[in-house]
Nucleic acid binder design. Structure first.
Lengths: 341, 341
DNA sequence: TTGTATGCGTTATCAA
DNA sequence: TTGATAACGCATACAA
């Protein structure tokens, strides 16, 4: 049988309460007894029983809040699935999840959404907008005892506990690696269609892509780079312009949203046969275009895991009080082609 | 606050014991009261509290046994990591893991290993040898109340609760998809180096590979197929023979073990520049050869997840008594290239 | 500074 | 067929 607080108390000739105070650093214990208790606990290999902890914590109703700018963005569908799955997984332990979704990235809206659920939650999971106002909001929450976990996008200079999401640079490197695989490293003129140059992750993907060009594929050349603001119509327009202006382009690197618009533009110009296209994430649009043979590969960032794991990290912190071991939880960059979609 | 057995008991005007008997199908309850209790529980949306369940289950010491033919097989290193991680994750809930590793696939040895730990365990995780003796052993265990989960390899006609492992056919399809990506579908003469034609999973990978040839790459031709018995020396020999006999081969599909032997043979014949090689799993050998550029891609089967999830499935069954939702838990076939290793 | 009592939700045992 | 009670391990309010 695993060793318990009760057993330690008996061995030390003190009460359970005293052992509890020592092991949870609540102070008010004589130094000598403290040392003795610590030593005994160590020797016996004491591991706190989580079920007991959870049950005791059950006196208070615990809730985890989630604020996601997920509406109208198909990428987040699987993130939400992961969150809902985690919700059922921890429901049996008496902790619930309060979900609030938003459309688009408006600082005031995000702040208001957080404030709205703030009174009801003990932890917050957030894909933050990179803005000092949001950083300040996070610090407020943490100072008032609500732990914050960032998901999918990180934010600098805040007291958030940890980040779970993509290694964007490596994602860009992987994308270029796949293009190298497809072209055999032959001279290639590449058009880059990014989401926004204001989004750090998008820029990091391009950096990674360029890294691998420099490292392995010196015959690759990026000839143009345009923005879609993750909008399919805009993507359609800028792609047509780009391909008209640079008819030499024979590969497209889609960094973020607008996948459907880009592909429709390529198809409308009858270039889908000779064009090599790499994109990110497994959305209905990218899946459809891979099945059609328009896109050759997509790099996915384990959206389900991002959602699921973030909730579990929050839950474990709430019931055990232990911070996660790592500050950064990077998900894998998964290569998907037609056969393993 | 979530609804509890106690609350249901109060509402029904009965005792907790009666509610427990109904909700856990222990019988010995009058039909009318049973129906009433079920209805109230349903209406209130009763969800059993796992922490309470686990704590109550803690009266008995629970243990999960693992028998793995992992020694000398690098693939299992990550499976074991997943198991050990799960062990620490559930240690806090008072359940321990008893691990027994074996070298090679000997039916009697596997049976003895199981019998050895049998008296101390409540569940068993096993990568079974496909043999009626093992199937019988599994049925014995299940009949005596020890649930069995198969991992990495399944076994037919047994009472095992569920399987977690690879979809081998899809793995073969993915491998062929990658070769198609690399060659652009150009005419290719392929040598297949399998582990053993007696291993179902290896055959399924070849079937999947052939599926995609038929479906998408009719210019691919498998010109030869040899066995390594997962041994590097044998792999070295048969590969040299094959390449000598079929100098037209320009791609190799390594189905199982012996990766290092195959690659060394290719290098010794100075064919690594023009040869395209696809293999499985992320072992030190395959990683080294990808870094050297000898292998272009490897298809991985989430070994960590296989180990980790199998333990969690067993744990959940032990403490909740609920069988897993699915009989088959297939892990992903992950494509790894140099950039996302 | 330390000890005691109570409760979290479930299950098991014993008595009625 | 049912009810009452103790126990699992931990946290906490309160008493000493």
């Amino acid at each position: 049988m695993a060793v318990t607080i009760k057993q330690i108390a008996e061995m030390c000739g003190v009460s359970r309460g005293t052992v509890d105070r020592v092991l949870n650093n609540r102070g008010k214990v004589k130094k000598e007894t403290e040392q003795m208790i610590r030593k005994i606990a160590e020797d016996l290999g004491y591991v706190p029983n989580m079920a007991g902890k959870v049950l005791a914590a059950n006196r208070k109703e615990l809730a985890i809040g989630v604020v996601l700018a997920s509406e109208g963005n198909a990428f987040f569908d699987d993130v939400l699935r992961g969150i809902r799955r985690a919700e059922t997984e921890i429901a049996g332990y008496g902790t619930k999840v309060i979900l609030k979704t938003l459309k688009g990235y408006n600082v005031q809206q995000q702040r208001e959404a957080i404030e709205e659920i703030r009174p009801h939650i003990n932890a917050l999971i957030l894909n933050p907008i990179s803005d000092p106002i949001i950083a300040q909001e996070i610090d407020d929450l943490v100072d008032s005892g609500i732990c914050v976990i960032t998901i999918n996008t990180d934010i600098q200079n805040s007291k958030r506990m940890c980040y779970i999401g993509s290694d964007y640079t490596k994602g860009g490197e992987t994308a270029c690696g796949m293009l190298g695989m497809i072209t055999g490293g032959a001279p290639t003129k590449i058009g880059v269609i990014t989401g926004s140059t204001l989004v750090l992750g998008h820029n990091q993907r391009i950096t990674g892509f360029q890294n691998v060009i420099d490292r392995r594929y010196q015959d690759f050349r990026i000839v143009d780079c345009e923005q879609t603001d993750d909008d399919d119509i805009q993507a359609f327009e800028v792609t047509k312009e780009m391909l008209t202006e640079h008819p030499e382009i024979d590969a497209i690197f889609i960094v973020a949203g607008g996948v459907y618009g880009v592909c429709r533009a390529v198809i409308s110009m009858h270039l889908e046969e000779q064009m090599h296209i790499i994109c990110f994430d497994s959305t209905p649009a990218s899946v459809e275009m891979i099945k059609k043979g328009v896109i050759q590969a997509t790099i996915c960032q384990q959206p389900f895991t991002q959602g699921n794991k973030s909730v579990h990290l929050a839950f474990n912190y709430l019931v055990s009080g232990l911070k996660p071991e790592k500050e950064y939880y990077f998900v894998k960059n998964e290569i998907k082609i037609l056969e393993n979609l």
